[in-house]
């Protein structure tokens, strides 16, 4: 494992910790999209089915389990916690997730490495992760004002994807015959989804003011 990949994973983990801390400390999930969090749970469940039949490393297994547990913990807070669930912007978080799930599934059936249940589900998870942040970005656009922690959460998620891109470039030049087109193309799309957000995040940071999205 190279330094870019490790930095990417740690940024991903940190983004989840930031979100969980925000929810626990402020007892509020205002500005957080439950739809996006549920899509991430679907992504992790369909991708990490290999926990049952393949072992890569202890690091790999532990991280997968952490991502699964934290995803369901966040969903639990937003749906079931008696204080937190009342702060959820249900009326604003109206993205139709089937418009993401169905096309990703069809694409996974059409473009994959092998027509098996686990391989199609794994491919589906790759496609779905690329667009899973969209309900969150739409919610942000609607509520306009972005609180610091939610902003940092999304910024870290975007950074994690950017670090994965660098990791793939590094692996391409250091590992003979290494290529994974499905992952590369989806990952590039996924990183591009964040570009607009990055622009406003960096602008707010440079002007030392609270982040605001244009109408």
């Amino acid at each position: 494992m190279n330094i870019f990949r490790l930095a990417g994973d740690m940024t991903h983990l940190l983004s989840i910790i930031v979100l969980l801390l925000k929810i626990q400390a402020t007892k509020s999930c205002a500005g957080v999209s439950l739809k996006t969090q549920e899509l991430y749970a679907v992504v992790f469940v369909t991708r990490y089915l290999d926990l049952f039949y393949s072992f890569i490393s202890l690091y790999n297994t532990v991280m997968k389990i952490i991502f699964l547990l934290t995803a369901f913990t966040i969903i639990w807070y937003m749906r079931k916690h008696k204080v937190v669930c009342q702060t959820y912007d249900k009326e604003q978080d109206t993205f139709r997730v089937l418009f993401l799930i169905v096309p990703c599934f069809v694409l996974a059936l059409l473009v994959n490495h092998e027509m098996s249940v686990t391989e199609v589900l794994w491919t589906f998870s790759i496609y779905l992760e690329a667009v899973a942040i969209l309900p969150q970005l739409v919610l942000l656009q609607r509520t306009k004002n972005v609180d610091n922690l939610t902003g940092n959460y999304i910024f870290m998620l975007g950074s994690y994807r950017a670090l994965y891109l660098v990791n793939w470039v590094y692996r391409y030049f250091t590992e003979l015959g290494y290529r994974q087109w499905i992952v590369w193309v989806s990952g590039t799309v996924q990183t591009c989804v964040y570009l607009d957000f990055f622009y406003y995040y960096v602008q707010a940071w440079r002007n030392n003011e609270r982040m605001k999205l244009p109408g």
């Binding site: 393949s54 490393s57 991280m63 490495h113 994974q180 992952v183």
Partner: peptide, 10 residues
């Protein structure tokens, strides 16, 4: 091109 990279990423 055939991808045969191991699924070792998260």
């Amino acid at each position: 091109a055939q991808d045969d990279a191991p699924k070792d990423e998260l």
